[in-house]
C-alpha cells in the first residue's frame, strides 16, 4: 500500500500509520506530544489517518446519545470549570427534575435514533435518596422506552456500583477531566486517585466505563498528551471529549476558548492513542469548532455524538447533527441492549 506524500513529511504520522492503523496499538505519551505539535499543514493528514483508524478499528457507525441532568447545581465539589458547583457565584440555580419529565426526555431522545440516555447528577456521590430516585427512573424508562441507560452520579461506593449494575445501568460516566499533573490546579475537593477508584470499580462490576476529558483549561500540550495516555491506560469503552466553554462565575470564566485547530489536533491524537474506543464529541464543540469543525472531527476520529443540548448549555439542534451524519454517509449505531 502506498503512503500518502503528506505523511512522509511528518515521521510521527508514518509511525502512527504502521503502529495504530496497521497493528492497532495506540501511540505512547511521547508520540502523542509529537502529534499535538504537528504544524497546521499536517492537520488534514493527521485527521485523515485518525479517520482511517476509526473506520478500521471501530467501524462506520456513529453512536448517538442524549444526556440530562436529574439534579442540577448545588454540588459541593470545586471543579473549576463547572457552573454547577455550589462554591462559585454561578448563575446556575439548583433544580431537580421529576421522573415523568425524565421519561419524556428519554422518549424524545430515543426518537432521534439515539441508543444511549445518560442520567447525570451534580453531586460528589449519590446518597440513598438519589439512588432510590435513580432506581425508580430506570424502571420507568425501561417500561416505556427502548434505550440503553447510562448514569453519571459522581464517586461511588462498591455497594452503589453493584446496585447500578444490577439495575441494568450498562455504562457509567466518570471523567478524569485532565492530566494527573494538572488535576490539583482544577479540583481541590477530591483527588485523582478517588476518580480512578470509581473507574476501576465500574469496570470490575462489568459496566462499560465512560471516562472523558475536558481540554482547553490551561494545560500544556504535554499534559494533554499525558491525559490521553492515562485514559488509554484505563481502557474505557467510551471517551467523551469536551472543550472548555468558560462558564460565568467559575474560576475558569476568563480562560480563552481554545483554538479550533488545536482542538482538531487533540481529536486526532486521542483517536491515535485509543484506536478502539468510542470517541464522543461532548460539550464545548459548538464554541470551539463551530459547524465546520464538527464535520472535520467526525472525519478525523470521532465516532459518537451527544445529540441536542448538554446539562446546562445548549448544543446544536439535533437535526443539524443527524443531517450531517446523513451527509457524511455515517449510519447511526443501532440499539443493542447489553445487559
Amino acid at each position: 500500500m502506498t503512503i500518502q506524500p503528506q505523511l512522509l513529511k511528518h515521521p510521527i504520522l508514518v509511525t502512527a500509520r504502521e503502529q495504530v492503523l496497521e497493528q492497532g496499538r495506540g501511540l505512547s505519551e511521547a508520540q502523542l506530544v509529537e502529534v499535538l505539535r504537528l504544524p497546521d499543514e499536517a492537520l488534514p493528514a493527521a485527521l485523515d489517518l485518525a479517520h482511517q483508524v476509526r473506520l478500521k478499528h471501530c467501524g462506520e457507525d456513529v453512536e448517538v446519545e442524549g444526556i440530562i441532568s436529574i439534579k442540577t447545581g448545588g454540588c459541593p465539589e470545586d471543579c473549576h470549570f463547572c457552573s454547577q458547583s455550589g462554591l462559585f457565584d454561578s448563575p446556575v440555580r439548583g433544580v431537580w427534575l421529576d421522573i415523568p419529565e425524565l421519561v419524556k426526555a428519554a422518549k424524545e431522545t430515543a426518537a432521534t435514533g439515539a441508543t444511549e440516555f445518560c442520567i447525570v447528577a451534580a453531586v460528589r456521590g449519590p446518597d440513598i435518596k438519589l439512588m432510590n430516585q435513580i432506581k425508580f427512573a430506570i424502571d420507568r424508562i425501561n417500561e416505556e422506552v427502548e434505550i440503553n441507560i447510562a448514569c453519571s452520579l459522581g464517586m461511588l461506593t462498591r455497594r452503589q456500583v453493584d446496585q447500578l449494575a444490577s439495575w441494568g445501568v450498562h455504562r457509567y460516566n466518570h471523567n478524569l477531566e485532565t492530566a494527573r499533573s494538572y488535576f490539583p490546579q482544577v479540583v481541590t475537593t477530591h483527588t485523582y486517585e478517588e476518580r480512578l477508584e470509581t473507574c476501576a470499580m465500574v469496570k470490575d462490576a462489568g459496566m462499560e466505563l465512560c471516562c472523558g476529558a475536558l481540554i482547553g483549561m490551561g494545560e500544556t500540550l504535554e499534559q494533554r498528551a499525558e491525559l490521553a495516555a492515562q485514559l488509554a491506560a484505563l481502557d474505557p469503552h467510551e471517551v467523551p471529549l469536551n472543550f472548555l466553554n468558560p462558564r460565568p462565575g467559575t474560576p475558569l470564566e476568563n480562560q480563552q476558548v481554545m483554538d479550533g485547530k488545536d482542538a482538531l489536533r487533540a481529536i486526532a491524537a486521542f483517536r491515535l492513542a485509543m484506536p478502539r474506543t468510542v470517541l464522543r464529541y461532548a460539550g464545548g464543540r459548538e464554541l470551539t469548532l463551530g459547524d465546520l469543525g464538527t464535520r472535520d472531527g467526525l472525519l478525523g476520529g470521532v465516532n459518537a455524538v451527544i445529540v441536542g443540548n448538554y446539562l446546562t448549555t445548549l448544543g446544536r439542534p439535533a437535526n443539524a447533527d443527524l443531517n450531517l451524519l446523513v451527509d457524511l454517509n455515517m449510519p447511526i449505531k443501532e440499539l443493542q441492549k447489553t445487559l
Binding site: 448563575p91 433544580v95 431522545t109 459548538e286 441536542g308 443540548n309 448538554y310
Partner: peptide
C-alpha cells in the same frame, strides 16, 4: 445562542432552568 437565559427579563432575578436534550428553551 449557546445557553439558556439564566435571569428573568422582567425582574433580573436568577431563574431555575432545566435543560433537556431536545428542549429548545428552558423550563
Amino acid at each position: 445562542e449557546l445557553e439558556p437565559p439564566r435571569f428573568c427579563v422582567r425582574c433580573g432575578r436568577r431563574l431555575k432552568v432545566q435543560v433537556s436534550p431536545l428542549l429548545v428553551g428552558p423550563l
